[in-house]
Amino acid sequence: MATEKGRGATLNGESRRFNLAEHIADGDWLDALELVDGAKPRRRTEVTVERPRTIISRNKSPDLSFTQSINAYRGCEHGCIYCFARPTHAYHDLSPGLDFETRLFAKPDAPALLRAELSKPSYNVSPIAMGTNTDPYQPIEKDWKITRQCIEILVECGHPLFITTKSDRVLRDIDLLTRLARDRLVAVMVSVTTLDPKVARTLEPRAAHPLRRVEAIRQLASAGVPVVASISPIIPAITDHEIESIIETVASAGARDATFIPIRLPHEVAPLFRAWLQEHYPDRSARIMHILHEIRGGRDNDPNFGTRMRGQGVWADLIRTRFIKARKRAGFSGERLTLRTDLFRRPQGRQLQLF
């Protein structure tokens, strides 16, 4: 499949992990389509309403700094080819390829579900993370505003919040974030994978321009909102040469620290990434995969706790050493951002809100 303008994946095959029946395309209909329209139409973004029973997901991973998260959306229109969340679309009998970035799910009941869960006497407060699976500020948030509604409830309750995004749309909610920041209840991580707009255009085609993300860091920091920059994932022979320049740039913009993860290729992400390399970097695709295999213990992906976020071997050590040195030159102290949990108050019932 040729690259579709404005999309990340070059493939849209079904997942084989769950032995689902293969879909057969209607060849007659496709032939007629080309005869009538003259060309295959561009794929448009579709949004389906999802009605979950709960909205807070919990994990026990030793690799993560949070135990609770909220995902207002499934799938992500940003179309980042490396996104480790792509395989989740297979659970819906959808492709982790183009379906993941065009057939999205929104959860408009999320704010009501969040209020209900926070109201339970059994609820134990700990920071809630947004953006751990798909971006809470992807383009459809402009119309659905589910992320903002959830944050409004967290502000009301004095609840701690971590946000991860690669969109400057986060600035729309700076009024809420500054209120949380006054009480040390929020930290925002902005992803800056590359400063090169040409690389970003194919790597993360519908995400904000890199300089707009840097400006988001600047404005958040100026407003007193703690910001950390993530230069994840680092992709050898594509973005690794930018480690030092990205860290210097985000430090100048006011970021308090920076983090990184070498690229991961779980499940269907690996063949999607290979196809993307062949399309955009055919001259170095074999070399890149060779390096990735060295970082991941000879495999496309290392799923093991402890090593999956760090990588191993000479290449991983080299990247880590460069990152640490650049981080030190930028003046980052490495002090961990901790959020308060002692200000939490359960949300008021709907009747009390009338008074």
Results as ranks from 00 to 15, higher is better:
4 E>C: 11
10 T>I: 15
11 L>I: 14
17 R>P: 00
31 D>W: 08
35 L>I: 05
57 S>Q: 04
65 S>L: 06
65 S>K: 11
69 S>N: 11
72 A>G: 08
73 Y>S: 06
75 G>I: 05
83 C>N: 00
87 P>M: 10
90 A>F: 08
102 T>E: 04
109 D>L: 11
109 D>K: 13
113 L>R: 12
115 R>F: 08
121 P>A: 13
123 Y>K: 11
126 S>C: 15
129 A>S: 13
135 D>Q: 09
137 Y>Q: 01
140 I>K: 09
148 R>D: 01
149 Q>L: 03
153 I>H: 04
164 T>M: 15
170 V>E: 02
174 I>F: 00
178 T>I: 04
178 T>A: 05
180 L>G: 00
203 L>H: 12
204 E>Q: 07
210 P>L: 04
214 V>N: 02
215 E>A: 02
218 R>N: 04
220 L>S: 00
222 S>G: 00
223 A>M: 03
225 V>P: 07
230 S>V: 03
240 D>R: 02
242 E>P: 06
253 A>D: 04
254 G>T: 09
258 A>K: 07
258 A>I: 12
263 I>R: 02
289 M>V: 01
299 R>C: 01
299 R>Y: 08
307 T>S: 14
307 T>Q: 09
316 A>T: 07
316 A>R: 03
320 R>G: 03
322 R>S: 06
326 A>F: 14
329 R>M: 12
330 A>F: 13
336 R>V: 15
340 R>K: 12
350 R>H: 15
351 Q>L: 14
351 Q>H: 11
